[in-house]
Design a protein around this nucleic acid. Structure first.
Lengths: 244, 244
DNA sequence: ACCGGTTTTTGATTTAGATCAATTAAACAA
DNA sequence: TTGTTTAATTGATCTAAATCAAAAACCGGT
């Protein structure tokens, strides 16, 4: 909450956690880090199952995930929900709210999590004086668009097993980027949520997991996944360059 | 090509064509319009079937479509292509290239078209001095993300007829925004391209068209579509708030 | 450690849409 | 105009994934 903070601490937090997305690759000087610190200093904790934000929420805030795991989803009027993304430690959340004054989806914590709130207006303001920050922010937005296009490719033309392989490889890569193991990780979401994201029913997801396990490509222990053969898994997903 | 231009002309072109997306809603003063004019003054013509840009093209340019119709698509290694979007007069193209140095898809003209080239670096530069322009640009990017999420919803949980209804209503709305008829329009793309976009085969698209026609919701004359009952078509697509 | 609810797995059956195939219609060039 | 190519429609069949169903594993709370 306080705007009083330690630059060294911010720098190190940039290097290790949530703010890396936003400022690590930019190469800011001390004064710029100071400015940015004022913007990102507000922390917030969300318990497992809790909402980070709701559809139609008005406040325009971005969130850098300091620790934890989220899903974003659209709730249809008939009750079903479509998962539009999963978001892990170090990633940025809330880009959808910029288009209008309202969020267009719900963001729900899949485990106890902590985020930094980033008032978007303030970020715009200081990024005007720090071109590299603005550039970096634009790249993040564009990357989101590109990722969504890969998902469209996946949903539009891949079959169940390819989708799951694609998904696992995407998760693997994102864990690797954050410094976690790329072959052994816990998927916080349920089979149903994976299914919703991949355009499949939960039973189909489960079957696909089993199939990949029988082929000794992965080991499945409920939510704990171990990838036994990354290369062979890549072949599985077809020759597509999917899920950026 | 020239940086010498008439402010009045730019203003009027803003009001009527491609640049509306970029500058119309912003409310710029004369000096700002002048600045913007320097950025968007380079025009380019593309013939039907021609490429506006290729995957892995390096130049970072945005394109405002002055007139015409484009598709963007990802070409898979096995030859199939996934259409990721259709883009009509007045819309902005090329947002995918910001994330890296390369375009991540092809943009192909579906009819003879004309675009304004907007060097992205220059746009960033001048938007630093025009906050409302920057804000507006961010909204455009965010809207793209939100739209992609609607498509994910469509691909993930709608059935063939709902998808087509959703698609037609989206087209209708976009035509309406640009000042064309919302109930009678030409779809420049083939059934195969619609199918690729909607995650369906061309035969299925054709059948869905026929079905909607038999139910007297629309009239189909090859590429010319006439919507007979907008409200009933909206019901068709399920209670989903799809395709922003 | 036990209990009640949720999540996951696996099997049997059904179905929407893919695939295969053939006809008709439109677009285009000579 | 005519012939040639490409696009669209419609029908018959097949299949991947949805749906229905039931058992097994896991989780959180006491």
């Amino acid at each position: 909450m306080s705007t009083n903070f330690d630059i060294a601490q911010l720098r190190s937090s940039c290097a290790t956690c949530s703010l890396r997305e936003l400022c690590l690759p930019v190469g800011l000087n001390d004064q710029e880090v100071h400015l940015l610190g004022e913007v990102v200093s507000h922390k917030r904790k969300i318990r497992r199952g809790g909402y980070l934000y709701h559809t139609s929420t008005k406040f325009q805030t971005l969130y850098a995930i300091k620790s934890g795991f989220f899903k974003t989803c659209i709730l249809e009027e008939d009750g079903r929900q479509q998962v539009t993304g999963f978001h892990m430690t170090g990633e940025l959340l809330g880009l959808d709210a910029i288009s209008g004054d309202l969020h267009t989806c719900d963001a729900i914590a899949l485990e106890n999590s902590e985020v930094c709130e980033i008032p978007f207006a303030k970020l715009e303001e200081i990024s005007r004086t720090i071109p590299s920050l603005m550039r970096h922010f634009h790249r993040i937005m564009s990357r989101e668009i590109v990722r969504d296009h890969s998902i469209m490719l996946l949903l539009g033309s891949m079959k169940a097993e390819e989708r799951l392989a694609s998904f696992l490889l995407n998760m693997s890569r994102r864990f690797a980027i954050r410094g976690y193991s790329e072959t052994s990780f816990i998927l916080r979401m349920t089979r149903e949520e994976i299914g919703s994201y991949l355009g499949l029913k939960l039973e189909t997801v489960s079957r696909a997991f089993s199939k990949l396990q029988h082929e000794t490509l992965i080991t499945v222990n409920n939510k704990h996944i171990q990838i036994l053969d990354l290369d062979r898994l890549k072949l599985k997903m077809g020759n597509t360059s999917c899920l950026t």
